[in-house]
Design a protein around this nucleic acid. Structure first.
Lengths: 220, 220
DNA sequence: GTTTATTTTTAGGTATGACTAAAATATATT
DNA sequence: AATATATTTTAGTCATACCTAAAAATAAAC
């Protein structure tokens, strides 16, 4: 069953709200997430239910079906592969991705997706450190750790962030912290929890406890 | 002035019909080109005229304004850069491009475009051998020659086609003829005008006069 | 220079995806 | 349990972009 770009956006939203949750998703939640009005959400839920992507009972909330989950993972895969392309190949920065990947995630064909995946070297994680579903919707475990939890002398590779607000991402760019950067913990300051990092064996950078808690890394 | 994807498609169509022509473009022509109905064309012409992209007088045909030409060249630039990406980086074939570039040509930001251009090595021609406008809308001269006009022993590089119908492109793929291929004219048969080529110093291939007239090359 | 044929436009309708305002249902409060 | 509040749905609009069928304008034929 084929979905329009708008339908894809709703499905993706429903799925993403559903993963971190047991119960059903409410109309208001979805409206807030998708920056639209509850009435528009209701309209769309009917369409998605008719296409078999979600289970929807009036006034009772909504959840994705097996088919819907599969589709949502496919859309997510498309988006994340394009994001890897934008960052790794075109060297765009984290805060420049959203608008473009919103558009690109709806562009695909099976062949394009396969070739893009191959071209990018079958990446397992997106630029934010989140796992990319493979063709079968399976995802790798992500052994990421907040760098706050690293010890002095430990080194790692930045693979993501917890907070992807524009202001935080801009701060990171300014501080020389980017996806793929190698870091070494030079020091941890006891009284305020701040840390001193060595980035790419070159740049020394102090970061606060709060920042350290929001940057994720793979430990070597 | 910003255009919707549909408006961009119409503008591109009007512009492309206009370049090889002195007079104005007719509604029927545009409808045929865009696979739509004349009534839909009329609707859209009003919108484009209101946005200052075209000069439109009822019943009198249509032509692009200076602003419209600039916009059309920008859209063309986006499309062609994406096409180069699809062919050079993802190794898609000519007949697989149209659908994807129809979608991709509407995806862009100034930064994306600049990075894509840089990443592709500032290409001057698209996979069909047509020139790519630069940021200022300027295009290189294309010194292409039908391989029918090459002499025996002359060699060149395939840079485009005159006929980009799906059936022709599929024939070329089957014959091992693709963009970027090196060719050497081994023989020209007098009585039917057919040619024998050596492709990439490896494959020998006979092609008819008609085919040779529709393949364009750069002469070394 | 009429008449005929073609082209183009208008008028009115459809589907998508959004909206507001009002009604229906569900949840909280007392 | 009855009322008040919050949520969700319906009903009715609007804009985009398409369509068909009919009317208007232009071009061609005689």
């Amino acid at each position: 069953m084929n979905l329009t770009p708008a339908e894809e956006n709703y499905l993706k939203g429903i799925y993403s709200l559903g993963v971190s949750r047991n119960g059903d998703i409410s109309t208001n939640e979805l409206a807030a997430l998708l920056q639209t009005k509850p009435a528009s959400v209701t309209d769309m839920l009917k369409k998605l239910a008719k296409k078999g992507m979600i289970t929807y009972v009036k006034y009772q909330g909504v959840s994705v079906t097996t088919a819907g989950k599969k589709k949502a993972l496919e859309i997510t895969r498309r988006r994340k592969l394009w994001e890897v392309f934008l960052v790794e190949k075109l060297r765009l920065q984290w805060d420049e991705l959203t608008e473009l990947s919103d558009a690109l995630e709806h562009v695909s064909s099976p062949l394009l997706l396969q070739r893009l995946d191959e071209y990018l070297g079958y990446p397992k994680f997106d630029p934010f450190g989140d796992p990319i579903p493979n063709e079968h919707g399976e995802m790798s475990e992500n052994p990421r750790v907040a760098i706050l939890d690293l010890s002095v002398e430990q080194s790692g590779k930045i693979i993501g962030v917890n907070d992807n607000s524009s202001s935080f991402l801009k701060y990171l760019d300014k501080a020389g912290i980017y996806i793929g950067a190698k870091i070494l913990v030079l020091d941890k300051v006891d009284f305020d929890g701040s840390m001193e990092l060595l980035i790419d064996n070159k740049r020394r950078q102090f970061i606060s406890k709060e920042v350290a808690a929001n940057i994720l890394s793979m430990v070597y």
